[in-house]
Design a protein around this nucleic acid. Structure first.
Lengths: 230, 230
DNA sequence: ACAAGTATGTTGGAAATACAACGATAATAC
DNA sequence: GTATTATCGTTGTATTTCCAACATACTTGT
């Protein structure tokens, strides 16, 4: 079955997205008709959202791939993120009327996009109140999750030296794992990219810390040491 | 008039907070009784939330001052933020059940705190549905705003050199102002702290860029130049 | 007017980082 | 089994940043 007669999106697809997670296929028709989303297809490299616009809708990629780009005063472009099917974009702006887009959204491939008006998500309608609640919960949870991820990354990056950045990150990973021994989800290059430092310098620093007895590691497995080993 | 007989919080105070903004004083009693918040007083240096806890409530400072602290694996402490009366804390965690606190909250002064269960904020009750909607709107808007601020700061800080960080920040400010001429809300030391670089090195870099004709400035007034001036 | 304090720019040496290059090893493809 | 590729550690040099110190201009308080 497809949503609102749009052939590109099925309820089976929607109920797996973070936005609609927790709703069932029989609830979705009511919810979708209440949200009254718009559907649009974009050709490759077509601009979906322009930097400087004021948007009030949340976008969800149905198929294809959308890239979020930033362009500075001198025209230097920077790819911020890839948005894949089932993922949303523009949430931060859609709920802040008057806040102008600081990024652009471009279809990196031929893409289909669903646009949901933020007000429809928040305002209560008689028929689908319960589903709205779920939707808003999902939205808030996603926003909170993104917030945490950004705060954590920022807390590592606000450290001045590579060593401090590493310690901040590893300490955080140790806390997540609830153990002084843990695996990280990055290889060296990815970790360096995440912490915005040079890979070789970082590798060097890791080995120095190992030699000083602060930690040990093997590939992506790490162990932190509170006291200098004998 | 005071909320729920708690002498420390007035409706006049609440309706000015970001969380309750947009509600009127006659709506607040219904809303508050529906939210059923808890109230607690904390002595100076008393711990309000422990790192590692799993919280489900949003905290609002009513009086005093609350500090958010981070402690790493080796016990190094770091002050993340000050929370002042009317401001909230713990939002990111309260809406993510199972996510353990990576920070602690401590009363920096004798403080009164209101705790609102996140589920009460989201779940629909028959009597105060409209006010709930407003509350959730405010919550989402705050989360989105914080998200944007973090994303912007991160986009500056992910640049490797001081010059690139400056250009990213100034470009962003220029976009906000909608002009190549604008004022920044920082002095040099504050800007250096925000970008996590050394003040003198940053000052030096600013002057170099000025001499190269990329921009001009006087105190906190800046002007960016797209072409080299003749 | 004067003193004290604040903000900004400037400099030089120490420290840290980026960059390029290379070897060793492990994983993958053919 | 061999070639190819990816990953990681290592090193030396150039560049950048940090840090401490100081000069100047401006502000504030008395």
């Amino acid at each position: 079955m497809s949503a609102q007669g749009n052939p590109q999106v099925s309820y089976a697809f929607l109920k797996k997205t973070t936005l609609f997670r927790g709703t069932t296929e029989d609830e979705l028709p009511t919810l979708i008709s209440c949200l009254a989303p718009g559907y649009r297809d974009f050709a490759k490299n077509e601009i979906i959202l322009h930097q400087g616009e004021d948007i009030t809708s949340v976008g969800m990629v149905l198929s294809g791939r959308v890239q979020i780009l930033e362009e500075d005063f001198w025209g230097n472009r920077n790819i911020i993120a890839d948005v894949w099917p089932g993922e949303t974009f523009g949430e931060s702006y859609a709920f802040l009327p008057g806040e102008l887009l600081r990024v652009s959204a471009v279809a990196a491939e031929p893409s289909a996009v669903m646009m949901i008006d933020a007000r429809h998500m928040l305002e209560i309608c008689s028929s689908a109140c319960r589903f709205h609640t779920r939707l808003v919960q999902n939205m808030l949870a996603e926003s909170a999750k993104k917030n945490l991820a950004l705060t954590m990354k920022l807390s590592h990056m606000s450290k001045r030296t590579t060593r401090e950045k590493l310690l901040s990150y590893l300490s955080s990973q140790s806390l997540s794992a609830g153990s002084d021994q843990f695996e990280i989800p990055f290889n060296r290059q990815q970790l360096a990219d995440y912490l915005c430092v040079d890979r070789s310098a970082m590798s060097n620093e890791l080995c120095k810390m190992r030699d000083e007895g602060m930690l040990s590691f093997d590939k992506s497995s790490f162990q932190l040491k509170s006291e200098i080993e004998v």
